[in-house]
């Protein structure tokens, strides 16, 4: 007998529907609860605004700051790879939701970050993930045919480079340390930060 909890329970021919399919009910319930809490003065709009502002503060430049430091300081680069959370804290960034693991690209190795189960992402450092990172399309195909996904993002990885996909399925969060452009170690800090994109930190660009 097939178990409800086996891979066979899922019909592979069922079409995949993107978006929060069936989540309207919970969105409505959340809104209703929020209104009740406001009415009963258990919560103020300022409380909600403060939480939203805190969620929206982290962004790509925070992660880029760590990369910029690692590009200029080999000892910091080592510490960042050894313990991402501790190295982030050195520069004033507290990783709140999990442990940060930083994986370094080399000419022989390219790293790609995904979360097949949901949308795990180092949000307290990099902010909210891009929409496509949450899509079922990316989540499934980033592990199933990652080189084709990279090609669609414009990155044709040579066969000689190992591609390593990191599934953020539990208690770690991941960031890619991209390779430094030629001479970047001598650039001013702001120029180094500006050279780092969100795609690089996820691994969808080199």
């Amino acid at each position: 007998m097939k178990s409800r909890f086996s891979a066979d329970a899922v019909d592979p021919n069922t079409p995949v529907i993107e978006g929060h399919h069936g989540a309207d009910y919970y969105a409505l319930m959340t809104e209703a609860l929020h209104k009740l809490l406001l009415e009963k003065r258990l919560l103020s709009q300022a409380d909600t605004d403060r939480v939203i502002a805190a969620l929206e503060a982290p962004n790509t430049t925070w992660g880029a700051r760590l990369v910029a430091e690692a590009w200029a300081d080999p000892a910091y680069r080592e510490r960042l790879i050894e313990d991402g959370s501790a190295a982030a804290l050195e520069l004033g960034f507290r990783i709140k939701e999990a442990k940060l693991v930083v994986v370094a690209n080399t000419p022989a190795l390219h790293n790609l970050i995904t979360c097949t189960l949901c949308s795990c992402y180092p949000r307290s450092l990099l902010g909210q993930p891009p929409w496509w990172y949450i899509s079922k399309n990316y989540r499934a195909r980033s592990v199933r045919e990652p080189r084709r996904v990279l090609a669609e993002f414009g990155l044709d990885l040579p066969e000689t480079t190992e591609l390593r996909v990191h599934d953020s399925n539990a208690d770690m969060r991941y960031m890619v340390l991209p390779m430094a452009p030629e001479g970047a170690g001598q650039w001013p800090l702001e120029q180094r930060i500006a050279a780092v994109t969100r795609h690089m930190l996820i691994g969808t660009a080199a």
């Binding site: 990652p146 080189r147 190992e162 996909v165 599934d167 539990a170 208690d171």
Partner: peptide
């Protein structure tokens, strides 16, 4: 205890078309 484990893509997907040395890493309790 939580570990990160390393799996060959070619073992995960018998019809994997990428390079033979491609890998996947995932956390397992």
């Amino acid at each position: 205890d939580l570990y990160r484990v390393h799996i060959a893509q070619a073992a995960l997907w018998p019809d994997y078309t990428g390079a033979a040395h491609d890998t996947l890493e995932i956390e397992v309790y």
